[in-house]
């Protein structure tokens, strides 16, 4: 089968600044693919270009055998690319249930003329809530939840668009060690139980090395290396660019 995602020579310039420079990689279906690199390496910008929030300055993206270069972010979401954000992005003043209902209705009635398929949506969001472990928090106000739970809610909302590929921007940032382990488990379950491929930006090395099938290392907008975790750990270019001589891959 063809690749799920092909990124070809993607560049993004903001004025004179090149945030992403000639990045190419491919993702297979069912792959958990990591992107690492120091702050300012252009990882989130790369996400934003793939997700259609920014237009690429050069290069293109093919998703599921369709060229999605230049598509709007909502069209890309409808084709099956979900995303979570670096900062918590949920509707903070609403309950968990309302957040999930909104995610559901935003996708289902994506424009005023969209046909209303009266799917059993209530069941669907309950299933998602229990999958991410928020089944007991449905009536809690999202903004009052612990930080880690708000991040989980963001994942749950993205799940409701039934993505084939989920872009996760630092899912473990700000989590405590046990929450980080749970995040790793959740990422695996998304792939193993639901067949969702994952493109992951993460700074937590043990987590990245543990869950990812392959890793792309970026520095100053450019590709430094692309390989399996075990090879990345040994790559001197990576250690120079990012990890540092005395880096410990605990």
């Amino acid at each position: 089968m063809k690749n799920l995602l092909d990124v070809r020579g993607l560049s993004k310039r903001f004025g004179g600044l090149t945030a992403v420079s000639d990045i190419s990689f491919s993702m297979k279906r069912g792959e958990i693919f990591g992107i690492i690199g120091p702050n300012g390496a252009g990882k989130t910008t790369l996400f934003n270009v793939i997700a259609g929030q920014h237009k690429a300055s050069a290069g293109g993206v093919t998703f599921d055998e369709r060229d999605i270069s230049g598509y709007s972010s909502d069209a890309i979401a409808r084709l099956g690319i979900g995303r979570t954000f670096q900062a918590v992005t949920v509707f903070k003043s609403e309950t968990v249930a309302e957040n999930l209902r909104r995610a559901n209705v935003l996708r289902r009635r994506h424009n005023p003329l969209a046909v209303r398929s009266a799917a059993a949506s209530e069941d669907r969001f309950r299933a998602v809530a229990s999958f991410i472990g928020l089944g007991d928090h449905l009536d809690g106000v999202a903004g009052d939840l612990a930080y880690g739970l708000q991040k989980l809610l963001g994942v749950g909302m993205a799940m409701l668009i039934e993505p084939k590929l989920l872009l996760m921007d630092e899912p473990a940032a700000g989590l405590n060690p046990s929450e980080k382990r749970e995040a790793g488990t959740l990422i695996r379950r998304l792939r193993d139980e639901l067949g969702i491929s994952i493109l992951l930006i993460e700074h937590d090395m043990p987590l990245v090395m543990d869950v990812c099938d392959r890793i792309l290392v970026m520095s100053q907008g450019a590709k430094v290396a692309l390989d399996t975790p075990s090879e990345i750990k040994r790559d001197s270019r990576v250690i120079d660019a990012y990890l540092g001589d005395d880096y410990d891959f605990a």
Binding site: S73, D74, F85, L106, H110
Partner: peptide, 25 residues
């Protein structure tokens, strides 16, 4: 449901669009 959609678009358009909503339409 449309009220729910409007509220979502007003509160966070980037999030709403990432969930597939055609905000412009």
């Amino acid at each position: 449901e449309i009220g729910r959609i409007f509220q979502a678009l007003k509160e966070d358009e980037t999030l709403s669009r990432s969930l597939g909503s055609n905000a412009l339409a």
